[in-house]
Each structure stands twice: as structure tokens, then as C-alpha cells.
Simulated scan of single mutants.
Amino acid sequence: MRTRTLLLHAILLTLASLPSPYAQAGEHGYVSAEDGRCSVWAPSRLKPEEYALRYTGGCKNGRAEGKGKAEWLYRYAEMKVKSRWEGEFRNGVFLNGSDIKGSITPIPGDQYLIPMGKVNGADLLFISTSEQDGPLELCRTKSIRLVLPAGVSAADEDKVKSLMLEAHQRYRKTCPDTGRDLNLGIHTEAVLPQPNHMLPNPIAQAYMGPAATQVERYSNKAADQARQEQARAEHERQREASRQQFHDFSRRNNIQAWVTLQQLDENPFRWEGQTVGVVVRLERMLTRDRALIRSALRDRFAPVQLTGITPNFPGSQNSVLLAATVGKREPLPDSGDKNPTLATLHHLASRTCDKPHCDDWLMWARSDQDIPWGEPFKAR
């Protein structure tokens, strides 16, 4: 029994070492001819398990090149010729009568990356396809790719769109009878299959119909990123400008602390006689030179009185940056003894804000560490 088992194992090892009765599949879809001399790129359905390849003609680096003839023989029908390709081959790919000058890079999935010259300095590439059991069809194009020349930024949308239009026109001239919409993609580096055989995604793309005269369904990641960076830079510029004007206002008016109306209402005596900064909004005028004001920050708190103003003080629709001296608690004019007293401020200087809550003046302050409300403040 042991001898029989060892004999069977030896037979299996011997059979495994023998050449396969089928033509061998080469690198990423190349199939070797029966004589093993040359290989041809096979579409996905012409599998070597089912079809044998007979090839005669030019060969370079083990792949069909130049004039040649390839015959695909169906193994399960007495090796009858299923398909015959005769003509020009390039890098193992049958050109099928197409006028292609450069090299061709076949890609799994019945796709072919085909250089088609230049468009205004940019490399033009067709990504064409084939039937699953047929040869390359140049105008059966999945998309067009453009590789930008050195010195041209993908964020230059005018240039990118111009190149897309030129590429579209070149394609329609090469393939005038094609009525399908065309996908156009922009790259900044050479378009090469990745390790997973997929092509890199374009940084900008558009879709254009046969009669289109302008790019459609356009997107550009590089331009979007440039706009975002520009917006961030502009935001930082505005933040710095707001910080500068806030500190200038504080310095000119010798503001000793920035306080909230809640802090003043709770204990105005802490800052009595000091110059403070507050962010307020008019509630109503009490007399020609006195008003009730409320906080213009996002809190809602009890009002305080403001004296030393004129009837031209900004109305309730405006937020105001205010420098004022802290006074005592005082009753409202003609209020009698029954109404409570309110903290009182005396107007020194004010600036009307352009945005609610004075965000145009305060946008630089991201935390209470930037403006320590109620604590001593030193303008920079």
C-alpha cells in the first residue's frame, strides 16, 4: 500500500512538471503562440484555456511587432480558427488598421492606452477599448487624457479648458463617426498603469457631447484646492487685519479691560473709573444723551446705561465697539425710587461694526485667551 502511494505521488509530480497542453498566458494578458516564439495581447474572452494562438510575422522582445498574422484556434471545436488578425502589430497589440504612431500599453479590462501626439504642448492619450473577443478599436474610446507640459498649472482653468476643447476637436477629427459623449481628463504626470493595473485618476475632467463647443460637467481638483488655499490665506489676512485694528482701537483709547455686560451688571465697582471696552447694541434712547444698551455678543443679558452720546448713536440694527468709562449704578431718568439702578458707562469712543456681533473686529480672537474678558488687557 505504501509503495502504491509513493508511486502515485511520483506520477503526479511528473505530470505537474510537464508543459501545459494549452498556450501559456504571458504578462498581464499576453498569450504565447504555439511555437513559443512570440506573444500577442489577448482580449478577455480569448483565454488560453479555450483558445490556442498561432502567430507568424515580426517579433520584438518576445511580442508581435510589425507585419504579422495571428489566428485564434478554438480548442473545443477541433482547433478551428475563431478569429484571424492580419496586419500591423505594436507591442503585441493588433492595430486593426488604426493609424497609431506611438507605442501602445494594453490594460486588463480590454483597454488600451494609446499616445496620439500632442495638443498645444500637452501629451494626448486615447484610452480605447475592444470587444471581449475582438481586437483594439481606436475610436471605441472610453476617455481622453492630457498630460500637461512643464510650466502649465492644472489650477489654470482657462488653459485646462482650452486644452480640453482642442483635444475634443482632435478626437472628433480622428473619429468623426463616433456619436458618444467623451470623457476628458487632465494629468500633471505621465499616465501609467498602477500596480493594480488601474490608471490614476485625473486631477481635472469634463464630459463633452459630439457637437459640444464648450466643456461640460467640468470639475478641477487642483483649481478647487487653489481656491481653498487662497480663501484660507485671505481669511488669515482678514484675521490679522481685524487683530490689528482691534489692538489699535484699544491702544488709542487706553482700554484697560474688555468686559461683558454681564460682568458689569454683576459688579461694576470692580472697574469703576477705569476705561473698558464693550461690544454693545442700542436698545433705546432714554434722553438726548443717554441710552439703554444691550450686549451685541451672542449672550443676552440685562442692559446697562450709556451716557455722553448724541441722537446720532448707531441704531439697534448695528453692533458697536465701545470704549467707555465705568461709572456708578444709577436709576433710570425719572424712574422714581422703585426701579432698580443700572450700571452706567460714559461714552469715550465707538466704532460701528460691519458684521453682527462685531465679527469683523473680533474674528482674530479664537478663545478667551486672546481676549481675557474681565481681566487686565494690554494692547499689542
Rank of each mutant, 00 (worst) to 15 (best):
Q238S: 01
A25H: 10
Q214I: 07
L138D: 13
G179C: 07
L199V: 11
K69T: 14
G29A: 00
E137P: 02
R54P: 01
Y207E: 15
A343Y: 00
R251Q: 13
T188P: 04
R180K: 13
C139Q: 13
F246M: 05
Q238H: 02
D337L: 05
A302V: 03
L199H: 10
L113R: 06
N253V: 10
M116Y: 12
P195K: 09
R145D: 12
A150F: 06
E131H: 11
V81N: 00
F249C: 13
H247E: 15
M285H: 10
D248H: 13
R232H: 06
P106S: 11
R300W: 13
T260R: 11
A349Y: 12
G66C: 07
P311I: 10
S39Q: 14
G66P: 03
L184A: 01
F377V: 01
V304K: 08
G66M: 05
S319V: 09
P303I: 04
G87R: 05
S367K: 02
R237F: 07
S250V: 04
M164P: 01
A10Q: 14
Y207T: 15
D35Y: 08
Y55A: 04
G308P: 05
T310K: 12
T3F: 07
H168W: 01
N254Q: 14
Q24R: 06
S242C: 02
E49S: 12
R227S: 06
K221A: 10
P43N: 12
R251T: 05
S350D: 00
N254W: 08
L124W: 13
Q262C: 04
D133E: 14
S128P: 12
S17G: 10
L138K: 11
I186E: 05
S319H: 06
T287M: 00
G36H: 04
W258E: 05
Y22P: 07
D368E: 11
S367A: 09
E27N: 08
A241W: 03
E88R: 13
P210A: 12
D354C: 00
A211T: 13
F246N: 07
P372I: 10
S130N: 11
M198G: 02
E27F: 15
D368S: 15
T14K: 04
A349H: 14
R239N: 13
P331S: 08
L306R: 04
F269T: 13
E65N: 11
Y112R: 02
S103H: 10
P115Y: 12
W72F: 15
P333D: 12
A167D: 02
L282W: 01
G185C: 09
A190F: 01
E216M: 07
A25S: 15
A241E: 15
G58P: 00
I107A: 08
D299V: 14
R329Y: 10
S32M: 12
R294K: 15
P372K: 03
W373C: 03
F126I: 07
L348Y: 02
E65Y: 03
V81H: 03
V320H: 07
H197V: 03
E283C: 02
P202I: 00
T213C: 02
L292V: 08
T56C: 08
R237H: 03
L292A: 01
I186M: 08
M208P: 08
Q225L: 11
